[in-house]
Structure formats: structure tokens, C-alpha cells
Design a binder for these strands. Structure first.
Lengths: 156, 156
DNA sequence: TATTGTTATACTCTATAACTATA
DNA sequence: TATAGTTATAGAGTATAACAATA
């Protein structure tokens, strides 16, 4: 006599739905990811290059290791992303005088301009995706996500 | 004079944070994904094989095409997942008498037992991840995710 | 010795076209 | 002709070890 919830085309019991909390989040993330990819295509950006560009524009002088940590990816995987942005003259790698191992990442004027346009497009699409969701509900959802993140169990 | 929010190690303005709504969700999904992977390792399951198994146990007779749609992946990518579960005798592929092209997927006794154990382990870990989050807040967050999913703009 | 960025590499997940067997 | 499942394959994204340069 368990309640059932419609999720896609199959019905799962509420107990099972709780066991699939990652499954709901993955479905939702897929939606956002694919919408974002389509929105960013005209700018020749992917989610990863877009995120990196936005963070560099917002944090001039950021190091690659900091950016990798912020984006939650490994340093080796960031190299190709920064390479691509640099090759397109959207950012530059400046040597830090204080630590000649590291780079200070800075957006170029072209990078800042592209970033502005991309952000505007993303926000426009976001409106459609978040249609019917109250400001309060969205705020609660964001807090829940931040709580989950802070509850992360780092492996030892 | 923009407010700033701590996200990882870099500060981003609230406007920028809104432009990175996918970024927050990705970070959160990464946390859930990696926690889930670690939890499922003792059962020799990944997120995909776990999700497939749970859905088959909960929906006996499910077809592969239905399962693929439920899991939001392409049919070809499901084949290897079903192959693996079948090879481990956790599920069987039953021919449908009414449509000999399709398979009815059913869990074996071993599959149902492993599924039960895996769900228990996942729920135990979920408690830690959702620590400090009220039932109401979680419910709101889930509804928001479902709303986003239903707002999906299918490409034509 | 430790850290920054790098290369190489392997693995997982994803996406598409084309095939077979049934309908 | 259309659909269910399959094969082959290519492309993203991710994770790890090992290296050079610098601290």
C-alpha cells in the first residue's frame, strides 16, 4: 500500500525514490547541462569553459590550482580548458613575480565581452527553466545544495 | 558594492552566482556522485548499475527502452549496463510473448537481495549527507528539481 | 622536501549511425 | 515502414602517476 510517484515513465515507490536521491538530481542536472550546452553553443563555449571564464573574470589573478579547486576538477583536466581559453585570446596566463611556478589568470577585454554576452544568454534561458518556481523555493533549494556540499565526507 | 558569497575557495558576486546556477548544481551532484560511488563499491555497483537494478526490482517486466528513458540515457548505452547485471545473475532478460523484439527485465532473487542491501547502505550514507536539512527544505528542493525537469525545452 | 603546472594515459559516461529481427 | 535491441565508434569528462621548474 505504498504511495507511488511519477518519475519519467516508470513508477517508483516513495521508499525507492528516497534510495534514488542521486537519480533525481542527475535527471535535473542533465536538463540544466543540456540546456546550458545549447545556450552556449553560439559562443563556442561548453559548460566547463564557460564556468572557467566566468570565474576568471570575477576573480582576476586566480591561480590554476585555485580555479581547479573551485570547479571541483583535477588540475590536469583544467590545463586543456585554460589552453583553449588562452588560444582564443579570452584570457592570459601571467607569471606571478612572487611565485614563478604559478600563473595569474586574467581575462582579456575580448574575454570579458564574450563573458557578458554569454551570461546574458544563460540568464535568459534560466528564466524559462525556472519558470513557476518561487524565489523562496529557489533560495531553499540552493541552501539545501550548499548544505549537502558542506556535509561532504572527504576520503582520508 | 555587490554582495559576495563563499563558494569553494573563490568569491563570486551574487549576480555571477546566478549566472552559474549549473555550477552549484554540478558541485552538489559531484558530492552525491562520489559519495554514492564509494558507498556502492563494496557491492560492486556503480551509480548506473545501481539505478538500473533498483528500477528493475521496483518495476518487474520493464522493457529496456522504458528503462533507458527512465534513466535518461540512450538505448545503446543501456545495453552494457543490462549485460553486466545479467552476467552477474542479478536480473534476467525475458522475451515478451506479445512482442518478440522486446525484453521484459526482471530481477532474480540474488538481485533483489543485493538491491535491498545496497539501498540500506545508500540510505545510511544519505543521512550523513542530508544532515541538518529539514524535511520541509528537502521536500521543497525535490519539488524545485522536478519543476526544472518539467520545464525542459525539448529540442525539435 | 613540497608545490605549480604539465604530459601521458586509462576509464567512465555519452551520443550517433547503422545493423538484425521482429512488428 | 517502424520499433526493440544491438554493434561499433567517437567524443566528452574524469582520475592517477610521473615529470620539470620553482619554492
Amino acid at each position: 500500500m505504498e504511495p507511488e510517484t511519477e518519475t519519467g515513465i516508470v513508477n517508483v515507490s516513495d521508499r525507492t525514490l528516497r534510495a534514488l536521491y542521486g537519480y533525481q538530481m542527475k535527471r535535473t542536472f542533465n536538463v540544466i547541462q543540456s540546456d546550458l550546452s545549447r545556450t552556449l553553443k553560439p559562443f563556442d563555449l561548453r559548460m566547463l569553459t564557460y564556468t572557467a571564464l566566468v570565474l576568471i573574470v570575477d576573480n582576476p589573478g586566480l591561480r590554476q590550482s585555485q580555479l581547479a579547486e573551485a570547479m571541483d576538477i583535477e588540475r590536469p583536466n583544467l590545463v586543456v580548458i585554460v589552453d583553449e581559453l588562452e588560444r582564443r585570446d579570452l584570457i592570459i596566463r601571467d607569471r606571478l613575480p612572487s611565485d614563478r611556478r604559478a600563473y595569474a589568470l586574467k581575462a582579456t577585454l575580448a574575454g570579458r565581452r564574450l563573458c557578458e554576452k554569454a551570461i546574458a544568454a544563460v540568464m535568459e534561458h534560466e528564466k524559462m527553466l525556472l519558470n513557476g518556481i518561487s524565489k523562496d523555493a529557489l533560495s531553499v533549494a540552493t541552501k539545501v545544495m550548499q548544505m549537502i556540499e558542506s556535509n561532504r565526507q572527504r576520503e582520508d
